[in-house]
Amino acid sequence: MTSPTDAPLLSIEGLSVYYQQFRALHGIDIAVGPGEIVSIIGANGAGKSSLLKAIVAQVDRIEGRIRFAGEDIASRPTPAIVASGIALVPEGRRLFPSLTVEENLEIGRQIGRKGGGVGFAEIFDLFPVLRDKRRQPAGQLSGGQQQMVALGRALLTDPRLLLCDEISLGLAPTVVNDLYTLLLSINRRGIGVLLVEQDIRRSLAIASRFYCLLEGRISLAGRPGDFDRDTITRHYFGS
């Protein structure tokens, strides 16, 4: 596992995010090394989703620097960022419900890195249940299957960094277990993962490092083993 100090894949410095007059993040610093799993935890409204949306240029206005693979991406439009190797699995999956599973996946391939090495066959190997449903409208699938399509769509962009926003939300515990196992096997291919979750226990179990957000600021950061449960909970809710 790579240390974050030598040439991080993603490095964020002094990031502030604004929605009109409202400031969602206050000058935060975050780094993700190549092939690293980093977890962002925090309560509702702590600014976790704003962070991910800021990385893919989907917020009103930001201040600060966002560098990816050594290049400044803060001023680039979303399609250029995705094409350079960052893929977002959005909160609530956000599939196109009337498109078939295959068409949803195909869109991932179109928007991703060119000449990418990921093919449909690999996605269906990873999520065998999707193979039989590939001609069905994505809206007809179960929540867990839809989350697999959303992950597959992101993987087909051939990303170097995967941004996962609340992928376990609203899913049965067994399905979430499967998804986390898959996430680990995705990570083993060398893809960095920035994981946003409200479920602390599960996300800290697979992350090498974590940042805890509280009201738009980092309240705690480090390795999951460095702190006891109480310390993390205290910084999660504030006191």
Binding site: V56, T78, V82, P90, L99, E106, I107, Q110, I111, A154
Partner: peptide, 22 residues
Amino acid sequence: RIGANIRAVADDVAAADLIGLS
């Protein structure tokens, strides 16, 4: 392919922009 893109945007334009489909 372009038809699928058009239907995707018709389905959910915010989702399209969010994932990088302009």
